[in-house]
Amino acid sequence: MLVQRNIRPKRRMIRSAGKDAPFSAFVYVFVTLFALMCLLPFWLMFINSFAKESVIARDGFTLFPKAYSAYAYQFLFQNTRVFSNYRVSILVTVLGTCAAVTVTSMFAYALSNKKMRYGNAISFMTYFTMLLGSGLVGFYILMVNWLHLKDSLLAMILPYLMNPFFVFVLVAFYRGIPYELNEAATIDGANDALIFFKIILPVAMPSIATVTLFFALQYWNDYFLALLFIDDYKLYPLQMMIRTLISNLNAQQFISGSRTAYAIQIPTYGVQLATVCVTVGPIVLLYPLLQKHFVKGLTIGAVKG
């Protein structure tokens, strides 16, 4: 066996001496404070999505609103096709993430490999696109007139298949892996592709997992592609539905005569908060699932073994 897998390093078992205690205390305090700072606004959003609209307008976002109502959620679920939106979002995210991680990690590996003489040139060409972007008009004409991708799932997946930012992050990780691993494998007769899939990938798992998470987020949070290329409302992802809904609620306030609401005040702010909570749910669940890949799954020192 060339590499040992799943050996967790034992360093965590080593008890720290007393002189580490103040440092430990500092670490816990700081981290807890920071976590609270991040959690607090989120709590505000969550609890106020259940607050009555009149209370939000009057008091703003409060820690414990004075009156509660689930009407924002009711409005959201009854007036929209939330479930079909979810379905589309999940489909696009899963398919997109799998494809994107594959393409990007392979590409980054090729760039990082010392053997490629033109690796640097390709790196520059990749980076160049990151800066220059593609411009709205050119991009739109490409997708609609040349590739005929309107109203299709592919329109929401393909443009993000490779993200130069993640490419360079992965390149940095790959370069940190000792080249001896490659050499040992080459001696054993493996070609570059085999080396990549069987050796490099397992070692680079934390960074691959990171990039997976980020791609998933990018696909999940995106409304831009749907806005431009999807006209069929049945194919709207979650974020597009949210953007249309909120944009309309905001616009309605300026158009006199259109605020003839029936009985209950339309929960403009409540709905905005409810939509954030509804969007975040699945991702917050995804992160813990991926976390087990973030820890080191493998010792680099396995080369000797």
């Binding site: 431009l228 006209d231 409302y233 953007r243 905001n250």
Partner: peptide, 14 residues
């Protein structure tokens, strides 16, 4: 087809 108000200008132009 409904276009969000905030993107009406660019979407119709495109």
């Amino acid at each position: 087809v409904f276009v969000p108000w905030s993107d009406l200008g660019s979407k119709t132009q495109l």
